[in-house]
């Protein structure tokens, strides 16, 4: 297991975040720092990662666990390199998200919450992401993919595969 340790650059970022709050209120930095940690350590938060964040911000580990388990964007187990987070709430549903989810399932051969055996793709259904006018949609990494159709899903999968092969 790799040692959980931020790079110099990330440590500076943590300092910059902590400086946004009054003295002694560094707990406010917890969510932003958990985002940083999730990015840096494989897209999910292991107990070691959370303990590390606790030590950085001088918090008890439980203070980190209770926050990490509350927010849906924090992954508490490993996920695929590319996570398709498809919205399924009302406005997306009336615009065809059910069909898109079925299409992705059949295309990738996995169910919701599962990861492909090669570790490339995870399919997750999520609740409203605020893109209702551009439905159906999914979040892929930092960005949204909107106006999804089966053809567009094919393109996105191909794009991810190409990126993975290039790495």
């Amino acid at each position: 297991m790799a040692v959980v340790q931020f790079s110099e650059e990330k440590l500076n970022k943590v300092k910059e975040i902590v400086a946004r709050y009054p003295q002694g209120k560094q707990k406010s930095a917890l969510i932003p720092v958990l985002h940083l940690a999730q990015e840096a350590f494989g897209g999910w938060l292991s107990a070691e990662t959370m303990d590390y964040v606790a030590s950085l911000l001088q918090l008890e580990p439980i203070e980190v666990y209770e926050v990490a388990t509350f927010y849906s964007m924090f992954n508490l187990k490993p996920v695929g390199t590319y996570m398709f987070e498809v919205c399924q709430t009302g406005p997306c549903m009336v615009s065809g998200s059910d069909q898109i989810i079925e299409y992705i399932k059949s295309k990738l051969g996995i169910g919701v919450g599962e990861t492909t055996p090669d570790g490339l793709f995870t399919l997750k259904t999520v609740e409203c992401l605020g893109a209702c006018g551009y439905a159906p949609m999914m979040q892929l990494g930092k960005h949204y993919r909107e106006h999804l159709t089966p053809a567009k899903v094919d393109e996105i999968i191909a794009e991810c595969r190409a990126k993975a092969n290039a790495n």
């Binding site: 707990k27 406010s28 917890l30 969510i31 926050v67 927010y71």
Partner: peptide
């Protein structure tokens, strides 16, 4: 600018404040 992490409830103002303090919403 402070980013949340996926919780509708944090749109409620006191939950938002809790979250901004680094707690559950």
């Amino acid at each position: 600018v402070q980013r949340g992490a996926g919780a509708y409830i944090c749109g409620e103002e006191t939950a938002l404040i809790e979250s901004l303090e680094g707690k559950r919403g």
